[in-house]
Nucleic acid binder design. Structure first.
Lengths: 238, 238
DNA sequence: ACCGGGACACTAGTATACAAGATAGCGCCG
DNA sequence: CGGCGCTATCTTGTATACTAGTGTCCCGGT
């Protein structure tokens, strides 16, 4: 067995997956599955049956398998040969590692971004913050996360660190599920304030202050782990 | 076309791949291909024909495709649908990014490692250094790189940063080819000295000094790019 | 001799069939 | 009634056949 998975045998949702954009079928399946997992539309521990998915999507097993292989490389799916594939559990140790990677990389990136910071970057960042505020008011949580990613992306673009951004996104794919499951809605306005304070520091040319504020901002992600709701504890490991 | 690849039409080596360890065939193909690419037994730009590989290895296309998908995710192979798959060129911009990621992550890791540093770690590190010296004397370059990886792994183990190590390894898979192609043999003894100086600083409890020395060590990788041999320049992009 | 067109030999993507292992449930036996 | 063992049915891994697109090369016409 693979220990005690959350929703093992039961198949609560028939995977409301829809293939969207063009490109190869394999890519479409990959995007759909990845989105469903990161946004926790499918919960950690859920069974991923190749047969069920290809029946549900009307495609053959080949592109589905290809997508699963890629998701397994991303650490989002665990494959147990001859037993089954399951959405990877949220391991607290892995979350801590992802947080470490993201904090270290993003702080270094923002330091480089400070050197090339200009009015356009500032305007883009404040636009992203405004979009986050709108999403909060409208209760559109996915739009909030999307704008959050846009906001953090600006630093990498300003610094020209495309590769670092790719690494950050990869680490974030683990953190994303954590945020959506355990994120406290009361903290969202605080997030906005912290975002704005980082931009304020950059606009003022104080790179050290910006880096320090960003580091604190990312670290605060872990404050909400102390009061972890009991009914969600079964979704994490360790 | 895919621009000017180095060894496009020609197939200079019949892929002296041999499947070694147990596990699924797909994993064996993945390991063999990855090793061949990272150790530049197959050069950047070389054509990776699924048919040729599965003929060469005596397996079907399915596991070969699976391995190629994973290698494409790793950024080691570029797949052009209906045209072909090719060993990814060494993009100087990507090398710079990998260097950035590795430096930032590893410096942060070594700072954490300093807190938990003990005699065992020191002994392991010095053993790895000794192995590197032996490899240099014996002219076994692959053994040198293996010991180098072991050496750098020690910091992550001491700090308990498994995830960060995984990210470092991933960034290193790009750097590995660069090192093997453009590495200057005259610098190898200097590498040993730099490694030893980092451990000296850690043993002395001076974490800041260790971090600074490690940062310089990783940065020096780029000093050899200035005098890039002309006959190898065709293997890189940009 | 040069230029154009079509057959051909490739490529990767997809679909389907088969193989091997693991599990759960049921029936038989003690 | 309890425990052992078989079977039916799942799982993923592998092999093979087919599709559609692309580039090349040769041959024929100009």
């Amino acid at each position: 067995m693979h220990s005690e998975s959350a929703t093992d045998g039961d198949a609560p949702l028939d995977m409301t997956l829809r293939l969207e954009r063009g490109g190869t079928v394999s890519d479409q399946v990959y995007d759909a599955l990845r989105h469903a997992i990161v946004t926790v539309r499918v919960l950690p521990g859920a069974s991923i049956s190749e047969n069920r998915i290809c029946r549900s999507l009307g495609v053959s097993r080949t592109p589905v398998r290809s997508a699963i292989v890629r998701l397994a490389e991303d650490g989002l799916i665990d494959v147990y040969p001859q037993k089954g594939s399951f959405v990877a559990p949220i391991r607290l140790a892995a979350i801590a590692e992802s947080r470490f990677i993201r904090r270290v990389l993003e702080v270094a990136v923002v330091r480089d971004a400070g050197a090339a910071w200009n009015a356009t970057h500032s305007a883009d960042a404040r636009a992203a913050i405004a979009e986050q505020a709108r999403a909060i008011a409208a209760g559109e949580s996915e739009a909030f996360f999307r704008a959050d990613e846009q906001f953090h992306h600006i630093f990498s673009r300003a610094a020209g660190h495309d590769g670092a951004w790719a690494a950050i996104v990869q680490a974030n794919s683990r953190l994303g599920r954590f945020h959506r499951l355990f994120g406290n809605k009361d903290r969202l306005p605080v997030v906005l304030q912290e975002h704005a304070s980082v931009i304020d520091a950059l606009d003022a040319g104080d790179v050290d202050l910006a880096a320090h504020r960003l580091e604190d901002h990312i670290d605060k992600v872990f404050t909400l782990i102390d009061h972890l709701p009991e009914d969600l504890r079964r979704l994490v490991e360790d």
